[in-house]
Design a protein around this nucleic acid. Structure first.
Lengths: 230, 230
DNA sequence: CTATTTATACATCGATCACTGCATAAAAGG
DNA sequence: CCTTTTATGCAGTGATCGATGTATAAATAG
């Protein structure tokens, strides 16, 4: 690790005395461009020269505004999350049952990972990032924490469903959340490999087709056939 | 792409005239070490210096034996596949039903991705490789073809199950194979993030819990919302 | 105006990247 | 023996990596 970097602290935009020459480029626009490039190419494969190109600024300006490549990536990840989080989690939060929430999460993930309603890069920036393979331990930890956040949301929702009576008390919400998270991670890889939206939608559908079998008890479905509900 | 590289053609080991000094290192051992490092770190993050270290040879010997980094990676991928293919596909091939085959595939993937019976690196080298992100188009295509091979095996098995009467004639074997492949891909990411074997086994179990529901007809489970189409 | 502050462009830093030239060492054939 | 063939070690190739130093241009404060 070259140097430690500050976590992106939203850098309060109105606290600058602003005596000298103001910035000529829009920081958010530049950050959005950097995020997109990191999203597409990943951390290692994106060079500073690539970044300055798409951001439309020089190296000095980049380092003056974002300190280091690591810090820029951390900020890009935060920008990515805050900007696109709703694409994947909005319907999940609004769903009235655990099953609807899980289905919404996977369906909207399928949409987001294939470009959304505009031309977003395919795949998930957080899932597919290979930062932290060796060095870059701080960034690697940040990525892992980001991915873990998705699991936490899923598990919390399933736990709530248990107290709501929506899920059987015997349901293993941890395994359930891990499964949904795993399917979404797999969808990210498929999207990177060119899977289209219909394929990912089918995966989401199939993934939850056994929902009623597993939410009651997940220890019965190994060999004998359970009753085919609905 | 710096230079094109030959596909690993198994370089018939008995056809060398062998007039001069013979090679002092074991090519297969060196290849195995390189494979392991590529497996752990990925293509980009592994430098030639890293490789010569773990292979115990000098740069010149590496290039004399493997031509280029690209060619070495291609050969490492082939070594990986031929060496560990049985870990994941043996029980799959021996299974008598499509469901047992799919379950064996996912279960054995769970084992292989968490170290197998020795200390193999976690995760799947083919699935997690990010080669081909920008340049490296040949290697990227090779990786994509390798991943596609897994899908082909799954689909072929499911198709056979249809003629065997093991699967309903209405089953969509393409979607089914895509789903199983997606779950396995997700397991690779989870394994890279530190998931243990029990977690991946639970994922495999849950993934197939809806098998009986979906193998007959997969168009019945979208109760709440119609597909938002693309 | 001057003084101060800051952004930008350009050149460049040392380190590392994949890769190679060269001299030497060692094992084979004749 | 000598010659041929090949492997090895070491230094070094140009290119690119992330990151900076310097000088200049521009905008604000007083």
């Amino acid at each position: 690790m070259k140097n430690s970097f500050p976590m992106p602290t939203a850098s309060s935009p109105s606290s600058r005395p602003s005596r000298g020459r103001p910035r000529e480029f829009d920081r958010q626009t530049a950050l959005a461009a950097a995020t997109r490039l990191f999203w597409i190419r990943g951390y290692e494969a994106t060079s500073i020269a690539d970044l300055t190109d798409v951001m439309g600024i020089g190296t000095k300006s980049l380092y003056a505004a974002f300190s280091s490549k690591d810090a820029l990536y951390a900020e890009a990840l935060q920008y990515y999350y805050t900007t696109y989080e709703g694409l994947v989690w909005a319907r999940f939060r609004a769903a009235s049952t655990a099953r609807e929430a899980a289905l919404a999460f996977l369906q909207d993930s399928a949409i987001a990972m294939t470009g959304g309603d505009c031309d977003l890069p395919h795949g998930c920036m957080a899932t597919l990032a290979t930062v932290g393979g060796e060095g870059h331990s701080e960034l690697g930890e940040l990525m892992r924490a980001t991915r873990a956040g998705g699991f936490d949301l899923l598990k919390a929702r399933f736990d709530r469903a248990k107290s709501d009576g929506d899920l059987e008390a015997t349901a293993d919400t941890t395994k359930l959340a891990r499964f949904v998270q795993t399917v979404q991670s797999g969808m990210a890889i498929r999207a990177r490999d060119g899977a289209d939206r219909a394929e990912l939608h089918a995966v989401a559908e199939i993934a939850l087709s056994g929902w009623d079998n597993i939410t009651g008890s997940i220890d019965h479905s190994m060999q004998s056939k359970p009753d085919p509900l609905q």
